[in-house]
Simulated assay, not measured.
Amino acid sequence: MADLVLVYGMRLLPADEVVSVGEARVELKSGKDAHVTMHVLEGDRERIEAQLRLSIEAFFDFYPEI
Results as ranks from 00 to 15, higher is better:
M1T: 11
A2T: 08
D3S: 09
D3K: 05
L4C: 06
V5R: 09
V5K: 08
L6R: 05
L6H: 13
V7W: 10
Y8S: 14
Y8M: 06
Y8E: 07
G9R: 06
G9V: 11
G9A: 15
R11F: 04
R11P: 05
R11L: 05
R11W: 11
L12P: 09
L13W: 06
L13I: 11
L13C: 08
P14W: 04
A15R: 09
A15P: 12
D16K: 12
D16E: 08
E17R: 09
V18M: 11
V19Q: 09
V19S: 06
S20L: 04
V21W: 04
V21L: 15
V21R: 10
V21T: 13
G22P: 02
G22V: 00
G22C: 06
E23A: 15
E23M: 13
E23Q: 15
R25L: 03
R25Q: 04
V26Y: 05
E27T: 12
E27C: 13
L28D: 00
K29N: 09
K29E: 04
S30H: 07
S30F: 11
S30R: 05
G31P: 02
K32W: 05
D33V: 11
D33P: 00
A34R: 11
A34F: 01
H35P: 04
H35N: 03
H35R: 08
H35V: 15
V36S: 08
V36G: 13
T37D: 14
T37L: 15
M38C: 15
M38R: 14
V40Y: 12
V40S: 09
V40K: 09
E42L: 14
D44M: 12
D44E: 14
D44K: 02
R45D: 14
R47L: 14
I48W: 08
E49T: 03
E49M: 09
A50R: 01
A50H: 01
A50I: 05
Q51C: 02
Q51V: 04
Q51S: 09
Q51W: 00
R53S: 12
R53W: 01
R53C: 06
L54R: 03
S55Q: 13
S55P: 06
S55R: 06
E57R: 12
E57K: 08
A58Q: 10
A58M: 12
A58D: 14
A58G: 14
F59Q: 02
F60G: 04
F60K: 02
D61M: 08
F62I: 00
F62K: 01
Y63H: 06
Y63V: 01
Y63R: 02
P64T: 03
I66S: 12
I66P: 12
I66A: 11
